[in-house]
Design a binder for these strands. Structure first.
Length: 421
DNA sequence: TCTGGGGTCCTAGGACCC
DNA sequence: TCTGGGGTCCTAGGACCC
């Protein structure tokens, strides 16, 4: 059996832990650059505020209803997430952190317990220790546990006296649950597939569970679709991933807080992102062989501009100076003056373990792992960016907007509120 | 004025090989 | 006029996830 534990309106809940005054009030959290809505409290959902809607379009509506608005605070959410996962690991050895607010828990061998009660215990403990409300779905496949979680959330939102836990341990139970869900609510059915399914008159998840595997193979992305149908019928095809795999791709990109035309400013931003990407490699103990960089104007302009370049490094590296050097050299090649740029970024590929790397004897720009290790140590101790490359710039006027960010309560001593007693 | 960021997997099709 | 068959590797593009 699989359990799926998912934080309710996770980012909003994180904000509420440190700001109890916004409990039971409408709250939204915005994406980077304060661009669009990425999390909503139930009260905000009730006002009809949609996920992903641009902030500027609903600003007056939010003001009108006194909605509390926050810029996203990933330092806080990431740290709260870690704490939640730590609590969950006490409940089973089989833990798969699926996203910042979601975790699969393996419950094989737990059948002699009442699984519903176990789920309730999990919820209560996370709430008590971390302050984050969750819902729990339990079922014989991952896809069904996602569906169970989804339905548990819906029931709980409608009626807070519900347990917030849904156990689907018999065919009868999961069939009934699926009949209450739309196909678009199913894990693995996105926009395109939902549209296609509607056109075949398949709107209900229970209908989807009944389609022939061969039909799913043809219309829902090959073996992925086939697996999906099997999972909806109680046959588990997607196993727990207990050991997080090293990333195959690392991407760091961000929109600018203002329009940028100057090569110097874009270079600073790209240097900053390339450094961060290299840092991520070192966190994973890997090196990258290939880097891609890109620059873009606004996607919503009449004639959007976008350019990119892929560069193979002389040898795989995780050294910030090397990755930044090649990124900036590439940028100079694709930069065109007179364009209003909105975004730049770097993607790393050809990622392998640093241990398996073949070292070259003679290199124009040798990596210096000891230097990188020292920089990482300092930044870990004194905060991100304490030591950085000069090419990152000092004023960083292109930085994204984040005007309504709460304090980084759990990761910065300086931002801890002082309470007078 | 203003529309996020960071990932995964799969398939199809071309290049190339024998 | 005829113009194989089967395999691998790589990449681009499209779908998905949160």
């Amino acid at each position: 059996m699989f359990g799926l534990v998912d934080g309710n309106n996770f980012y909003v809940s994180c904000e509420r832990v440190f700001n109890p005054a916004i409990e039971n009030k409408p709250v939204v959290v915005l994406s980077n650059n304060d661009s669009s809505v990425i999390a909503r409290s139930n009260e905000a959902k009730a006002l009809g505020i949609q996920m992903g809607v641009p902030y500027f379009q609903i600003k007056s509506l939010l003001e009108q209803h006194n909605v509390h608005v926050f810029s996203s605070n990933y330092a806080l959410y990431g740290n709260m997430s870690q704490r939640m996962m730590d609590v969950l690991s006490a409940f089973t050895d089989e833990i798969e952190v699926y996203s910042i607010d979601e975790c699969f828990v393996g419950l094989n061998g737990f059948d002699r317990w009442n699984l519903e009660e176990y789920g309730i215990k999990i919820r209560e403990t996370v709430l008590q220790h971390i302050g984050i409300p969750t819902c729990v779905g339990i079922a014989p496949t991952k896809t069904l546990s996602k569906a169970a979680n989804n339905l548990a959330k819906k029931l709980f939102r409608k009626d807070p006296s519900q347990s917030g836990v849904l156990l689907l341990d018999t065919e009868e139970k999961w069939k009934h649950a699926l009949s209450q869900l739309n196909v678009a609510d199913i894990w693995g059915i996105g926009h395109q597939y939902a549209k296609k399914l509607y056109s075949y008159n398949i709107t209900n998840a229970a209908d989807l569970a009944r389609v022939r595997p061969a039909w799913a193979k043809k219309h829902l992305g090959g073996v992925v679709g086939e697996r999906l149908i099997a999972e909806l019928n109680g046959t588990s095809c997607i196993e727990m991933e207990l050991v997080p795999r090293a990333k195959q791709t690392i991407c760091v990109s961000r929109s600018f807080g203002k329009v940028v035309t100057d090569l110097g400013e874009i270079s600073e931003a790209l240097s900053t992102y390339a450094s961060r990407a290299a840092e991520k490699l070192r966190e994973e103990g890997t090196v990258a062989a290939v880097i891609s960089i890109f620059i873009q104007s606004s996607r919503f302009k009449e004639k959007p501009f976008s350019a990119g370049l892929t560069i193979t490094l002389p040898s795989p590296s995780s050294d910030s100076r090397i990755i930044v050097y090649h990124a900036i050299e590439g940028l100079k090649k694709i930069y065109k003056p007179g364009i209003e740029y909105k975004k730049t970024g770097i993607v790393l590929n050809g990622i392998i373990s640093a241990k398996n790397m073949q070292t070259q004897l003679f290199e124009e720009r040798p990596s210096n792992p000891a230097l990188m290790k020292t920089i990482d140590k300092i930044n870990k101790r004194w905060g991100p960016g304490t030591v950085h490359l000069a090419s990152d710039g000092t004023t960083q006027e292109w930085q994204m907007l984040s005007t309504m960010r709460s304090k980084r309560f759990t990761t910065r001593w300086k931002e801890l509120p002082v309470v007078k007693v």
